[in-house]
Design a protein around this nucleic acid. Structure first.
Lengths: 338, 338
DNA sequence: TGGGTTTGATAAACCGGTATAGCTCCTGCA
DNA sequence: TGCAGGAGCTATACCGGTTTATCAAACCCA
């Protein structure tokens, strides 16, 4: 017999289908002796639940979804998502819940996917990334009654469950370190302005500037692309009073910035210190290797999965879990200003 | 009413459930007039199929799987997978079939996933990447009777359907180009020796060497990591008779190699030409920008999805589809030897 | 000893679709 | 006129689980 069903197990064990179902799901209704016997038979026949049948009966599909709304071109370079994904999967695998991943072009498409998933019952819940300032996805998911957890954005009132790290503290750590080295002109090449984490980082720089006696600490937003990162850097380094340190919101932009510095004959770290607000193999491939902020992205994903499962189990639970703080990994691209 | 079922549509249209099913699936059994009417009502009630119910009845789940067996650390940097994924999804979205993605540590775990997917009926088929020389996955999938398509490896006898590009021709094009520039000492820093594509590329270099009058054309295998790429490069450049050109099997290794050249004071492209057998934003971020082989990875994925759907429809079909040939994008890292 | 509760199990309904046997009516052809 | 055949549709079984109503036997305590 190819794939045994619980009916097969039932006949073999001399009990009813219902009893088998109870036994296999560890719920009351059968004696320990019977349960034991049924489990052993199921094991022998190497029975596995038919996911569709279970989904139909129990109205839960043991599958969660994750949509990433970024053009594929900019996506691959960042190890961020690969690590996050691995973490999420590791958090889900314990319950043998599967993950549906979708890469789409924009938020509109992303919302469309949520609608479809909800109406077709394809997922029990979703994980959100790249939270924006007034994020339309929040209301949408609430309306769809689809359990969700937000990665990176700590929710306010009426928000979703979340897993977050302290971007603000991390940015402060970077700026304070640079200030301690003696830098007074620090520039911040930020990401897309509508992302919440971009806003938090910008605010951190602005708040710290007077306290640390910085002469100038502009935050310049970009689209996260290497092209804009390079362009902004070129502009910054062309000023008569150029910054002596630049903090980039992503490793890709930092690398692009390093290229511009070399092209313009600006020595790193002699004339310019560079810090990337995100670590990856990229930063280590460079010469000089880049000082970068390392976050435990894997753990981030794992916790997000955990929280999502809790929210699925109890939709009304409001969870805001804070993960380990990022740490600054100092390499060769930072030094006191000359 | 929250989520209408076909029974709701049936009562509203005054027909039977069966008729509604026929109409919605575009199969004969109802008149055009009735079909039209049913479709309109379904639209009005914004009906969507319940995936689990459909899967249970039709024994197909409208979902395919893809497992990537590489440590997450090395994964993210390569845009290859992000592009491939997008392509696969674009190929699937037309039929609104979803994709399950899983990142695992090794092939053993990958096979375990296939077994689980097969026994739980979670996917209708799978897409394989990174085909090895005697790949255990082929037999396993055959035994599980799980439809599959292989990306990159053109199958021999008893093999699976596949989508492939001509690695051999591509490698020949690179070597011929370097030879035409005047290079006679060309080294090849290859990937993992057990990958089929690694073997094909090595063979291509070996076969072309005598014809092009190359003095020396060693292929050195690595684990695809930046570390080994750098180490091998260091060794190559330390020889008394160092190569004047190096071809790297991945962009990450090429970047690492470029770093070593700089560190050793070897000018690129003056003293050394560098070519990457894979293009991405990485190669363009470098100074000098790297000459690289560009493959249409997105299209690759799209075609793989298409072929998989055909194989799922007709399991006995044997398809080996060849995709567009890769092209060499010449940038700043190649020049005639000095 | 008897009435009520708990335990262990069963049979049947149910989830939302698909597949199929069978029925009715219409058409075409001999 | 009779009948084969097909179109159009219905009724119903079925997919493989979960859940619930029901029931018999055992147990408890006064």
């Amino acid at each position: 017999m190819a794939r045994p069903t619980i009916a097969d197990i039932a006949t073999r064990a001399g009990v009813s289908k219902g009893a088998v179902s109870f036994a296999l799901n560890g719920r009351p209704g059968v004696s320990d002796a019977t349960r034991e016997r049924i489990l052993k038979i199921a094991e022998q026949m190497s029975w596995r639940p038919h996911s569709a049948a279970r989904a139909l009966g129990a109205s839960r599909v043991d599958s969660v979804g994750m949509v990433i709304a970024r053009p594929a071109r900019t996506l691959g370079v960042e190890p961020f998502f690969a690590h996050l994904l691995s973490g999420v999967q590791s958090g889900l695998s314990a319950e043998s819940i599967s993950l549906q991943l979708l890469i789409v072009e924009d938020t509109a498409a992303e919302i469309e996917v949520y609608r479809r998933w909800a109406s077709e019952h394809r997922v029990d819940g979703v994980i959100l990334v790249d939270l924006t300032v007034k994020d339309p996805r929040i209301d949408e998911l609430r309306a769809l009654e689809l359990p969700a957890v937000v990665i990176g954005g700590r929710g306010g009132k009426g928000a979703l469950a979340s897993v977050w790290a302290d971007d603000r503290d991390a940015m402060l750590a970077i700026v304070e370190y640079l200030a301690a080295l003696g830098h007074r002109r620090i520039a911040h090449v930020a990401g897309t302005p509508n992302f919440q984490h971009t806003q938090r980082r910008i605010r951190a720089v602005r708040d710290a500037a007077p306290r640390l006696g910085l002469i100038d600490a502009p935050s310049l937003t970009t689209d996260f692309s290497d092209a804009e990162g390079a362009a902004i850097t070129r502009k910054l380094l062309s000023q008569p009073q150029r910054p002596t340190a630049i903090v980039y919101d992503s490793d890709v932009m930092a690398v692009a910035g390093l290229g511009v510095a070399m092209e313009m004959g600006v020595a790193v770290p002699g004339d310019l210190s560079i810090v990337a607000f995100d670590d990856s193999i990229l930063t280590q491939l460079m010469h000089p290797a880049l000082t970068a902020l390392s976050r435990d992205t894997f753990e981030f994903g794992r916790q997000a999965a955990e929280v999502l499962l809790e929210v699925i189990a109890e939709p009304d639970r409001m969870i805001n879990r804070r993960t380990a703080d990022p740490v600054l990994t100092v390499r060769e691209s930072t030094a006191p200003p000359s």
